[in-house]
Every structure is written in structure tokens, then in C-alpha cells.
Amino acid sequence: MAKLRIKKGTHALNRSLGGDIAINTILIIFGAFMFIPMFYAIIQSLKPLDELWVFPPRFFVINPTMKNYGDLFRLMSTSWVPFSRYIFNTVLISVFGTFGNLMLASLSAYALKKVKFPGSKALFAIITYALMFNATVTTITNFLTMSALGWVDTYLAVMVPAMCTPLGLYLMGQFIDSTIPDSVIESSRLDGAGEFKTYWYIAMPMVKPAWLTLIIFSFQGLWNMGASIFIQSEQLKTFSYAIGQILAGGIVRAGAGAASTVIMMVVPITVFVISQANIIETMASSGMKD
């Protein structure tokens, strides 16, 4: 009979003290490896110029200052293309790309998993296989497609491909499959609701965690998107690209660069903190059958 150790009132099965110590030690060491660079990025942004270039470099800041953030905004206001334009571009691309991805992917996922027409299994299998390679493979030929469509140097060139990423459809499909019983859909149909109505009023409210996950994945990708070969004119480039330009500015701009990195990372991290529970709930059904 297995030994049951009592821990805070619950049975802790098969847990040895040695193992607990080892696991926690590894967690702390690895946590430090993950956290220190992030922490250092924040510290750098708070250092006044003389502390940024001190030898030996310090892992802490003596006179924290917000001056770097001020410098960043001054740099922004003097750039050739107004910085508000870069931010506008990023927001526009992120919002429309994400919204399009959510609508198209959820509509398809619903149809593939709940309407079950001939071919729906094959289409979902194609999506599963599409997860196995990334956009690097298609960039070159997509450039030809974009030229043929006349989309080079327009927002469409970055927004539209983002709307049909396979990951969004895959996660949505798996989540619908595991959370919505067929009987719910059937009874909605018996009440006389068409497929579109059932999709919108019955299925969608049941998969809110998956929406959020899709929104966050799509948003993260678009928010962090830097230079794209489809976009040439400066007016259409993104915030992430502009930040990269500041970072490339060298020593004089090291402070502003550090500040801009922090601004870049604050947004996705905040979004993740808010939605973490929903994302984990969605990922629980992400499993792939062989």
C-alpha cells in the first residue's frame, strides 16, 4: 500500500521531501534565468545616463529617474513620421487583424465541428498539418501574390494573412469540440434556429475563453510585428519597427531605447495577466490526436 503523507489537510501522494527540495531549487534557478534579463531591461530604463555607462555595470539603480521616458517621447515628437502614426498603424493592424481572425476562425471552427458536412474532417486535418510549418516558407511566394493583388505597401498585405492563421482555427475547433455538447446544438436547431443563429447565439457565448485566447495570440503577433517585406513606405510601418530604429540609435539613445523596450513589453504582459485563466482553460482542450 502506498504511503500517504498528510500535508495541510490534503493527501500528498507519493511526494518525498527530497524531491520537493530538488524541484523548488530547480524552479528558483530557472526562474532567475528567466527573470533577470526582464528585470535588467526594466532597471536599464530607470538609470540616468551616467549610471548606464558606469564600469562595472550595476544590476541595480541608485538614482532612479523617469528621464529616459521623457527622452523617448521627445525623440518621438521629432521623428520624421510622427510617432502617433506608427502607434496608429500598429493599433489598426492589430485590431482589424485580430477581429478578422476571431470571426473567420470561429465561424469555420463551428461549421467544421458542429455542422459536420462531408469533407469537414479533411479540412480540419489540413489545418492540423498547417501547424507544422511556419510563415517563413510562404513569405517569398506570398510576395508574388501580394504584388499580383496590388496589395504591396498597403495595410491589407499584413492584415489579411493574419486573419487566416491555422492556430486560431485549430484552438477554437478543439475547444468547441470539447465544451459544446451536440445535444445543445441539436435542441437549438429543433427550436428552428438556423446555423448562423445557432453559431452566434448558442455556440459563441459558450466559448468565451477561446475568443480571448485567439484575441491574445493574434494581438501579440501583430503588436510585436516589426518590419515586413510587404510594407515599404515609412508611413505604414509599425510601432515595433520604430522602436527598433530607436534601439539601433546607439549610445546616445541607450536610455530612450531601454524605455521603449519596456513600453513594448508592458502591453502584451498586461493583456496576458488579465486573461491568463481563460487562456489556460482554452489550452486544456488543445490536445492533438494521432
Binding site: 528567466m34 534579463p37 526582464m38 535588467y40 531591461a41 536599464q44 501579440q220 503588436w223 510585436n224 516589426g226 515595433s240 522602436i243 527598433g244 534601439l247 523596450t261 513594448m264 513589453m265 502584451p268 504582459i269 496576458f272
Partner: peptide, 11 residues
């Protein structure tokens, strides 16, 4: 966090 934080890897 590192995987979603844009260009923070430049640190």
C-alpha cells in the same frame, strides 16, 4: 513573459 515581450530579447 519573455516570449511575448517583443524586442526585449535585445537586452
Amino acid at each position: 513573459a519573455p516570449s511575448i515581450s517583443g524586442q526585449v530579447y535585445l537586452i
